[in-house]
């Protein structure tokens, strides 16, 4: 799992590459820590290269969403692969996380 974060002011462009599963969920959470602490962040996460996420991955997206909201920021996931989009849909996370 590779996480690339490009920052311009309060705009964050994040590119995720690979799978999120038990083996790397903790690392993924650490990689996103800067985003969780940023105020007024405007985050766009490019998920086009993300092949799979386990429920641990979902939990981290949920944490990120909650912390972004707490810091008056906004977050959007984009270019999700169908099988990943399906996971967000099934769990209802599509209802609380903006996906385009």
């Amino acid at each position: 799992m590779n996480v690339t974060i490009n920052q311009e002011g309060n705009k964050y462009h994040v590119v995720l590459d690979g799978r999120i599963d038990t083996t790397n969920a903790n690392q993924f959470q650490q990689d996103l820590t800067p985003l969780m602490e940023a105020a007024n962040a405007d985050i766009e996460i490019d998920c086009s290269a993300m092949e799979y996420t386990s429920s641990q991955g979902l939990r981290i997206f949920l944490m990120l969403q909650k912390s972004v909201m707490a810091h008056s920021g906004k977050m959007v996931l984009c270019k999700l692969q169908p099988q990943v989009k399906e996971v967000f849909d099934i769990t209802g996370f599509s209802n609380i996380i903006k996906i385009i």
Partner: peptide
């Protein structure tokens, strides 16, 4: 209808 996973909100 998925609603939402429990424990979230």
């Amino acid at each position: 209808k998925p609603n939402l996973a429990m424990g979230v909100f």
